[in-house]
Design a protein around this nucleic acid. Sequence first.
DNA 1: ACGACTGTGCATGACTATATGCAGCCGCGG
DNA 2: CCGCGGCTGCATATAGTCATGCACAGTCGT
Lengths: 315, 315
Amino acid sequence: MSTDTGASAEAEARAAGAAGTSGAAGTSGAAGAEDEAGAGSGAARLQQLFEGHRLTPTQRRIAHCMVRRAADAPFLSSVELAELAGVSQPSVTRFAVALGFDGYPALRRHLREVAPAERGAGEDSYNEYQQAVQSEIDNLRHLASLLADPAPVVRAGRLLAESRPLPVLGLRAASAQAGGFAYFARKVHPDVRLLDEGGTMLADRVDAAVRAGATALLCFALPRHPREVVEGLEYARSVGLTVVTVADSAFAPVARHSDLLLPAAVGTGLAFDTACAPMLLGRVLLEAMCDALPDAQARLEEFDAKAAARGLFAE
Amino acid sequence: MSTDTGASAEAEARAAGAAGTSGAAGTSGAAGAEDEAGAGSGAARLQQLFEGHRLTPTQRRIAHCMVRRAADAPFLSSVELAELAGVSQPSVTRFAVALGFDGYPALRRHLREVAPAERGAGEDSYNEYQQAVQSEIDNLRHLASLLADPAPVVRAGRLLAESRPLPVLGLRAASAQAGGFAYFARKVHPDVRLLDEGGTMLADRVDAAVRAGATALLCFALPRHPREVVEGLEYARSVGLTVVTVADSAFAPVARHSDLLLPAAVGTGLAFDTACAPMLLGRVLLEAMCDALPDAQARLEEFDAKAAARGLFAE
DNA sequence: ACGACTGTGCATGACTATATGCAGCCGCGG
DNA sequence: CCGCGGCTGCATATAGTCATGCACAGTCGT
């Protein structure tokens, strides 16, 4: 270890030196590649922090390691950082002190406070409406990250495409979502049945769909979750339907009665909930369903032709 | 429980087993696509972790908090996570245990081992669905910038609030938007009339609304713009209604027949249009309308009280 | 209305992470 | 050759974090 220490410290010194000289160019370049969760700009900040301090080889090694793992650095313990940098834990503490902090926790706190400042720069300058939009953007971001794995959506699309007829359930606030889905779904699926009314008729309609051959049911479940929806799903499953649910959260009351639950958060910044993410997820589901329906494209083209012939649309 | 290295493998095995068998409620189905680089970003993995476990309200709060701050979560201490989630520190420990881990450090360790795939995986390799979401995020950003000046929205809100009754027009693809708006609007406005069917009845209904005292009409106009909508608006203005329109563009065919046009772009990344921004703008409009209705708050509270009395909503 | 139960926060002991004293290693100058 | 000063890791005292027993509040089913 000790023999290795000297040699590799030397190597690190050279590496750090190179990074230092190219610091200017590297900084501006990173500022451009903003999206990497504060990593780029955070690294730039780090470089600035280190500049002007005469650091020992071990400390340069720590600094270099922090730059490399800029995203994690604000959350690492001194022991972890030491291991990643291949130095002892006390060296990390001394490094923090050398930079002018009261200790390692102070350095870490500083990093945490500086990095996020760039992420949500001045959210308080937005007005009420803009904040609501902003929070919906966050919801969509979250949805995008969930869609990194499209398998659940693809599976849901197949389930829905195979069901003839396809019942689509949405009550109260969610009925608009269900309606929107059903409107488009009808253009590619031969038999979509919109279930947007509760009461005793709901079970009747579920029964009718099953008798007609339905195998799956799509449910839009948004807060505040009507009891009827929970009961409706319970019934639907009891008669053999596979339930695919788009809900505002994986913990919604409908979760227990769903075979496949796709979560999409609602926005609560305004007097009434905004359901951008659920709607978008509905369309994504629709897309997946189209992919599972061989004649979807043909049906769409047929509709376009007829619409044009009838002069249905302006423009 | 103190030893976190040896026991964690066991804990993970149990957690994975639980998630797999639960099958009931799962975004999972990723069993096969598991190897895919960065499969299921951190947030998605988190969701999978939580599913299949019956969580208490406090634990759900913790779970939500972790999902929201998925990037930081793997590095937060139990105290910090507790503060962010607004719960006590022991609750965090119990949460970890409830998920099948041997303690909070085991949970955090698990998160760290799973998460890094996401960071490295290039963010530019969005799949088809994610790209659609991304373009809707852009649309919302644009909407946010438009809302920097809330004057048009406020004016529209006043116009709509003053109209008794308030006709809301939306045909075909837009009928879901109109329906969603009408559903919520009815909770604060005494007489909302949904005009979601075209044909000759449309003019009849506009006439009826005017006779009943309507002074304004709200129209949702999305592509592809049905001729009927254009004609309907033309007629509405001819009988004296002030037309407020939410449209996908300032140059939509309905623009000529609108007194106040609020633009909100639609997403075209999928087979069918996504109307996040128009929907959100509708809710913003609703908010503005509430602000212009003095007794809106009272009506909402009254509804809440009645809903609670009737046990209308679950949870 | 009452008891049983679940869920929650507070208080505290066990434990991990951080800071500091100490000794060995290296390079340099006498 | 020796002594010296700076740098580093080891050992340990201290501070902060985690886990658990306990009491209280809310909910449900008698």
